[in-house]
Amino acid sequence: MKRYKRKDYIGLLYISPWIIGFLLFKLYPFIMSFIYSFTEYSITGTPAFSGLSNYIYAFTKDRLFWTSFFNTLLYVVMTVPMKLAFALIVAMILNMKIKGVNIFRTIYYLPSIFGGSVAVSVLWRFLFMKDGIVNKFLSIFNIGSVDWLGSPDIALFTVSLLAVWQFGSSMVIFLAGLKQIPNELYEAALVDGASRARRFFSITLPMLSPVLFFNLVMQTINAFQEFTGPFVITAGGPMNSTYLYSMLIYDNAFKYFRMGYSSALSWVQFLLIMVVTIIIFKTSSSWTYYEDGGQSI
């Protein structure tokens, strides 16, 4: 048993703001949303216990539940790999000894600073209008005008392009990771006559895998919660094709004030994110490589 000195307890004093914040603004809401999810609760009344009815309603009756559920899955599957692939490819090019790396890095990073702001969503809406500037650009190559935001088949893709455009922060993380790979590994591989592809798959990818893992987890969690883009660009349309899960939660909570039902929805989302994260974690042991054998994780 470890003995603590008086001096050690001072540490608790320093972290006390976080303890209060954690209990009040993280743990308490977390538990309450679980409890509310079993109740019928409009914000004016008091919560009335209703068993599993919210969950049953979501899975069996609410058509928008499955629509938004699959839209969101599709959105995640489209944005995360595209974003990470762009980030990795561009980071690898920038990692070659070329001049002006800083300028390119700055330019590629620039769109990321606007995050999920209304401004970039407004911008997207104008760029991809039927007679907007993207179609004008395509017409140079004799490609007919595409209804980017009006067609239910491609509207979600158009919205997800906004997230892909903001690959900058993943790129910077990759770039920092690439810098850490010792050059000797590549030199040794060159001596052994390893091809470019071989060097990528046998050195770069394994050495970069912890960083890739981190990016994958964080981007996936974020993508599942996307809200501003589809809300501002398409308002969920056309024909609910860009209606994402977080919009379903928002509508139920703040349009219809069904606090119990939307809590249940948020728990379904939370569990879904957990399951996906756990899958990434579990499979990661087979594809991530840690120099210290994973001690630091």
Partner: peptide
Amino acid sequence: FNFPFKKVLFALMISTLMLPDSVILIPRYI
């Protein structure tokens, strides 16, 4: 500092890093 339960508290702090905001949105609003 090396206070009691530091590891647990730190792990809790890290775990909130991955806690989706939407799951605490509604009770926080209330």
